[in-house]
Design a protein around this nucleic acid. Sequence first.
RNA 1: GGGGAUGUACGCUAACCUGGUAGACUACCAGCUUUGGGAGCUGGUCGUCCGAGUUCAAAUCUCGGCAUCCCCA
Length: 493
Amino acid sequence: MADKKPKREESKGDSSKVTFNIDKAKNFPDWYDRAIEVAQMVDTRYPLKGMNAWMPYGFKALKLMMRQMEMLLDAKDHHEVYFPMLVPESIFGKESEFLKGFSGESFVVTHAGKNPLTEKLYIRPTSETVMYSMVREWIRSFADLPLKLYQTVNVFRYETRMTRPMLRVREVVKFKEAHTFHATSKDADSQIKEGIEIYSEFFDMLMIPYLVVKTLPWDTFAGAEYNFDFMSVIPDGKGIELASVINLGTKFAKAYDLKYETEKGDHEYVHQTCYGISERELGVVMAIHGDNKGLILPPLIAPIQIVIVPIYFAGREDPVRKMCNEVLGKLTKLGFRVEFDDSGKTPGEKYYKWEARGVPVRIEIGPRDVEAGKAVSVRRDTGAKASVPVAELEKSIRLAFEEINKTLKENGQRYFSARVLHFATTKEVKEKYTERLGMLGLPWCGDQGCAKKLEKDIDIPTIGFKPYEGKGQKCASCGKTAGVTELFFGRTY
RNA sequence: GGGGAUGUACGCUAACCUGGUAGACUACCAGCUUUGGGAGCUGGUCGUCCGAGUUCAAAUCUCGGCAUCCCCA
């Protein structure tokens, strides 16, 4: 493994200098570790696999991101709740498919001090079982439905594969899981649509490009009827699941006896959905948009949106400091998250520091600016500098934020379209998909045998499928034209 | 689950093979000085993963534990 903290790269001159020099497509793990380190997102030194300490800056970014999701959920009548972290084995094991899927990767509490517990306690790997055993008491009649809940909790999964901060962890931090309860299967289906809309809006806000696919029937979430996955790609070409929107049908309702009384007085099982996101999303934002200076954060979730760097000269500090404070006060009042870096470091060092953290806009103020009543504004994404009259700073910053968003969105789309490829036949895949990076789609008739055959043929695992825009595709396996969808393949995280 | 590698200061690394004063860089602290892209000078703080064994003497050799990383299933 390369040095974790190599010597500074040789400078090419001015703002083209970088903090480190790692090709994130070729050597993603090293790039990602360095980016996290220089941005002070999480501290990876805690001696437990897959469990990291969140540092102030990283945690603020995470909270800002999660706040957006809360606003989206609240706007659609989801209510926040909290359920316990420990689950008695008797409750955990009620839904057999769920038990099969999750018992192997759960941490289990067996002792209290030295004394063995009479019943094993599971630490939630996700909260279906905990919540449903209680919500059973909360739902009496059709008038209680739909019930849409969410909670923000840490969940624990004993990952055996390699872990990576945020992207794959054993302690998932601030897992935001929504669980909904409905009278009919039709209602549950439309809730799935709402879930997809909420998540689409969320990922659009974060400038994360994605693909929504339906998971293959033999590959659904443990205990689910069907689910949709939001998939993106990280720079090394591996697919990554951003989120899953899951229709649980009545499987859990039957296991946990979740019934409601209908208008006629009958008792019916409720229909359920669930969907969740986690810290992983932040990791993906960093991975897709970061560069060799560090992070590039969308202004929406940047803990510091604007940093003010004073340029002092001996004996002339006061007017500069005064103006910096004025600008700080003015911008803060306008609602921006602003930092005035008045530390004793040199300007250059400050530039590197705040660029590493992905601060969208930097304002430099020196004696020249004070005299002219101007400030220099620098964009993190492009490095473009502009001298702006102080009176026009607000306007200029708002415009810069818009442009940064636009740039990130376009970069994201370009990035993604180069990594999601569409083919008609396996022959074409073998000829053209030589680097085997990203995800690829092939036409598929819907038959399990055909999917397995294609998977084996091109030696890349299936991800999920989605309808084609047009018509006329032939299944790449059997050649049938009826009911053909695009089946996606890719190596995933 | 199977295999391999590694553990020295916040970080990176030297000394380990061949046992004998733990050293450099970075970071951090103090002072001076400087500031439009990682300045400099002086001084200072901090370290051999844990346990056992061998030895006059262990960072170094042996055994065990713990942790991390990598590869394979």
